[in-house]
Amino acid sequence: MTTALVTGANRGIGRHLALELLARGATVYAAARRPDTLDLPGAKAIALDITDPAAVAAAADLAGDVDLLVNNAGISTGATLLGDLDGVRAEMDVNFWGTLSMVRAFAPVLAANGGGAVVNVSSALSWFAYPGSGAYAVSKAANWNMSNALRLELAGQRTQVTSVHLGLADTDMTAGFDGDKLSPAVVATRVLDGVEAGDLEVVVDDWSAMVKASLAKDPREFYAQFLTA
Rank of each mutant, 00 (worst) to 15 (best):
A129S: 15
G114N: 08
G134P: 05
A142F: 05
A149Y: 07
G116D: 02
R151K: 12
G114I: 12
E153F: 08
A124S: 12
T159L: 05
G114P: 02
F128L: 11
G132I: 11
P131A: 08
V118P: 00
S133R: 08
L152S: 14
V119Q: 01
T159G: 07
N145F: 08
Q157D: 09
G134Q: 06
S133N: 13
L150H: 03
Y130C: 15
A155S: 13
V121T: 07
V118S: 06
S126N: 01
A111E: 14
K140W: 03
A111C: 11
N145R: 13
N120C: 14
Y130L: 14
P131N: 11
L150I: 06
A137P: 00
Y136R: 01
A142S: 11
N120K: 09
G134N: 06
S133W: 10
G134C: 13
A129Y: 08
W144R: 13
A112Y: 01
V121D: 00
Y136A: 02
V121M: 10
A142Y: 04
V138C: 08
S133M: 14
A135T: 01
A142L: 06
S147G: 15
A111P: 03
A129C: 12
Y130H: 11
V119S: 02
A137N: 02
G115M: 05
T159C: 11
T159V: 14
R151G: 13
A142W: 00
Q160E: 14
N113V: 03
A141N: 09
W127S: 11
Y136N: 03
L110A: 05
S122K: 02
N148D: 15
L150G: 01
G156R: 07
T159D: 04
G116Y: 02
A155C: 11
S123N: 07
A135G: 01
Q157W: 08
S139T: 00
N143H: 15
S123A: 13
G132L: 13
W127K: 12
A124T: 06
N148P: 05
S147K: 03
V119K: 00
R158Q: 15
K140D: 04
V119Y: 00
N120H: 09
L125C: 09
L110T: 02
S133A: 15
N120M: 14
Q160N: 10
S122P: 01
S123K: 03
A117V: 06
V119M: 03
L154E: 01
G156S: 12
Y136F: 12
N113Y: 05
W144P: 02
G114V: 11
A112L: 06
G156H: 10
L150R: 00
G115A: 11
S139H: 02
G116C: 07
A155W: 10
L110Q: 01
G114C: 10
A155I: 06
N143R: 10
A124K: 02
Q157A: 11
G156Q: 12
K140T: 06
A112G: 15
G115E: 05
A149F: 08
R158E: 15
A137V: 04
N148Y: 08
A142D: 03
Y130V: 07
S126A: 15
A141T: 12
S126R: 00
G132H: 09
K140Q: 06
L150Q: 05
Q160M: 12
V118I: 10
Y136V: 01
Y130F: 14
E153W: 08
L150E: 01
L152I: 11
E153D: 14
P131V: 10
V119L: 11
V119C: 05
A141E: 03
S133D: 13
Q160P: 04
W144L: 10
F128K: 14
